[in-house]
Design a protein around this nucleic acid. Structure first.
Length: 358
DNA sequence: TCCCAGGACCCCC
DNA sequence: GGGGGTCATGGG
């Protein structure tokens, strides 16, 4: 008896899906052509240099939980990929040494030389300036313990998808899911002996439906993620160049996601995207940790919206930083795993649980 | 076995 | 408007 092929159409072994109808096993169509080439890999020689990082802490910034595609390797270097460029970073006093896979990096704010990009991406020249009342002992202590932390400027689309995936999920598992998306849909960069993967473009991710991600055990985040990718793709109107969309346009797109049901962008995810990728440093995401912290340390209880409004009104222009200090410090005192206790993690030599090229 | 994770969404009062 | 239930996966 002849073996029945599981797909008569354009079945892609890497994607594990028919690219025409998104059937997972067999689409039984015969008019499809050969598989699309997904193995687009470029190899890059490292560009080396360093930038000044005065009153800056690389570990707190990359390991605090805001970013999902960075990790500290066994050799002590922080390795990650941002705006389609692979990096190795290491702090040496007030200098940050870098190795990069490109000389220039394209962003929504234009194309930059790699050193300029790192200053912008890590806000090296933008330390927060906070006034903390003497009576607020928790915030004072948290701020003093996290000196040098900065909010990075994440790429907006990657940030949207990352935080839709983060809903009620451990950070380590969210990292693995994001790596999965990059592995099957992102372009490869061979950099210093390791294959990194760029985060997929919106239209590429939007090509797969919720059922596909259910199949790959993304759970209840499957349909919202697919819906968000589709919405962003529609808003971009076929524009595949990330530099063609400026910050104001991204803000409008994300506001649209927040107003639309089924995108997975509710109050908390919207605040995360605003804070981590849209330059809204006054935004306060309220998650389970922040809720416990607000209850234990400030006696504030109630709905997420209530806690959020309380923290934002209280924190003013720098509410995002104030909340992040408290979030990280509260987890430092309460989280069971050293991977979640970022202060302890940074002084240890333990490698990150998930690295961006896995 | 149970509880929890950087919640969103819908129903119900 | 807010309080509760439900959604689905993996780790401790």
């Amino acid at each position: 008896m002849d073996e029945v092929p599981r797909c008569f159409g354009r079945y892609n072994e890497t994607l594990e899906v028919c690219e025409v109808c998104y059937a997972l096993e067999g689409c039984h169509r015969q008019r499809c052509g050969p598989p699309r080439e997904v193995e687009e890999v470029v190899s890059a020689d490292p560009v080396e240099g360093e930038v000044e990082g005065e009153r800056f802490h690389l570990g707190y910034t990359l390991g605090s939980g805001q970013l999902f595609r960075w990790g500290r390797d066994e050799d002590g270097w922080w390795k990650g990929i941002a705006y389609g460029t692979a990096f190795h970073l290491r702090q040496d006093g007030e200098r940050v040494r870098f190795r990069a896979s490109a000389r220039t990096v394209g962003t929504y704010a234009g194309r930059m030389q790699v050193g300029t990009f790192l200053r912008w991406y890590l806000r090296l020249d933008e330390p927060p300036i906070l006034r903390v009342p003497r009576a607020d002992r928790h915030l004072r202590r948290a701020r003093d313990r996290l000196k040098g932390f900065r909010f990075a400027r994440q790429a907006p689309f990657e940030c949207v998808i990352s935080y839709v995936l983060s809903v009620q999920e451990h950070m380590s598992l969210t990292k693995r899911r994001i790596n999965f998306l990059a592995r099957i849909l992102g372009r490869g960069i061979d950099f210093m002996g390791v294959r990194y993967r760029q985060f997929p473009e919106p239209d590429v991710l939007a090509g797969l439906n919720g059922r596909y991600f259910r199949h790959h055990k993304f759970g209840w985040r499957s349909e919202p993620m697919a819906n968000s990718a589709r919405f962003v793709t529609e808003q971009l109107e076929g524009s595949t160049d990330v530099m063609a969309v400026d910050l104001e346009s991204w803000r409008a797109i994300v506001d649209g996601l927040g107003e639309l049901a089924g995108t997975g962008v509710g109050l908390k995810v919207h605040k995360c995207i605003a804070l981590f990728s849209l330059d809204r440093l006054d935004a306060v995401p309220v998650d389970t940790w922040v809720k416990k912290m607000a209850r234990d340390w400030y006696g504030i209880q109630g709905s997420d919206a209530k806690v959020c409004a309380w923290a934002e009104a209280r924190g003013g222009k720098w509410a995002g930083y104030k909340n992040e200090y408290l979030f990280v410090y509260y987890r430092e005192l309460n989280a069971p795993s050293i991977q979640d206790r970022i202060i302890s993690f940074c002084v240890s030599d333990v490698p990150s649980d998930v690295l961006p090229f896995e």
